[in-house]
Design a protein around this nucleic acid. Sequence first.
DNA 1: CGGGATCCCAAGCGATACTG
DNA 2: CAGTATCGCTTGGGATCCCG
Lengths: 248, 248
Amino acid sequence: MATRAVRGLGQYSGVARAVERVGERWALLIVRDLLHGARRYSDLKQGLPRIPTNILSDRLKELQEAGIVRRVPTVRGGYELTPYGRALEPAVLALERWGISALGEPGDDEIVTADVLATMLRAAFRPAEAAALPPTEYVLHVGGASVSATVIGDRLDIVPVGPGALPQPARAVSAEPPEAILELLAEPPVFAGLLSGDGTGAGAAEIDRVSVLAGRPSFVERFTRTFHVERVGPAADGEQVAADTAVA
Amino acid sequence: MATRAVRGLGQYSGVARAVERVGERWALLIVRDLLHGARRYSDLKQGLPRIPTNILSDRLKELQEAGIVRRVPTVRGGYELTPYGRALEPAVLALERWGISALGEPGDDEIVTADVLATMLRAAFRPAEAAALPPTEYVLHVGGASVSATVIGDRLDIVPVGPGALPQPARAVSAEPPEAILELLAEPPVFAGLLSGDGTGAGAAEIDRVSVLAGRPSFVERFTRTFHVERVGPAADGEQVAADTAVA
DNA sequence: CGGGATCCCAAGCGATACTG
DNA sequence: CAGTATCGCTTGGGATCCCG
């Protein structure tokens, strides 16, 4: 049984409410995956390999009760976000940005899924920078997952590609793809570094370690300008604090 | 003992990392309070009435190990965020915005602290709107907590006021306060409604229930323009889904 | 006043088995 | 494929006491 809500945090606060509703283990990762479209039970389970099936079931039930998730009537075992759940996107992307900047090395059995990759891209996407660049399609292969990110103006569209991706139904705008295409292959940490590198000096190390499978290598710089997150390492402990900070 | 980290989520993902580091119960609320300045152990405990002391101790230890929090050398029992921890601010505010829009009625023993109030204000603050308005100081009394929010141009400064607030040390800019002042008193749910109301029609109900203790009542509208979050109720279940959403 | 130690309960969780 | 049922166990977390 989905127990919960008995343990409020005792604060009339937005963050507290948010934590009460999506703070349970796994909950936010389910939301993250659903942000990219409806998913079936087995899709979710596959994307979250370490989640026990009963926990997935519990979370989905709780998220439904909270009005964050609902079933897709037409699809057996299908789930999707409600508008209320979709409103979590800014928060999820903000957390993603923070997390990206200190991903470190992958753990032994840590995987990268298409949804993980898509979230990284959407978190790192900079519409203002992108708008100034020519339309480009980026095909990324990172740690076994593959997505195609098409950037036209300040718009970003991501679709899963390659083996393992189900046929994508009814793309609204199947206008002709941009003529500029860049296809990259990179190990997960290299890819993370590519997103959070400073682009010029230090980031060059990552650039050398990505394989350009198709497209002009100079497009890599276009990619790093389009997709970028500020690096904020965990306490290099180098700098001094403003010691006069108030202890109120 | 602070056990943890044994249970990774198995994904090389920013959100997963974020959840692993600040997903523990209470952790994000501690960060939230520390976002407004250094705090002592007892301050934190007071602001989080339901947290057991050992859990607070554990969390602070874990947050330190993660490089998110560090001790303030000059203050006994003082804690503050590292730059890495402060980088969580966008994520915290995004969660706050989402949480505010469905706060509902306060639970029996839910409290509002000055830090809670300050977080609400900072989450709801709209610099672009504020910049067009004259400098104004808003003094808010909500559910026992009181803060003063001074808005000058697109800048927002918040200081705790009234009984319970320690003397505020060394305000850098103690320039003369704005001549326009609005002092409000409201019950917590009324205040939340004020922030997420639509400002005109439906929001009027909240406006009638706030007490203007000082300043011109017309300034209330200035307040709601300066501080606002989109309302996204949990599943009014009214509208239809785009049924063609991909289940990929 | 800051914070560590201990006890104890149950919730949250994970693995496995089972069912429509 | 989409879950439910059961079980054991870890551990989070609440209360209380204790120490510097």
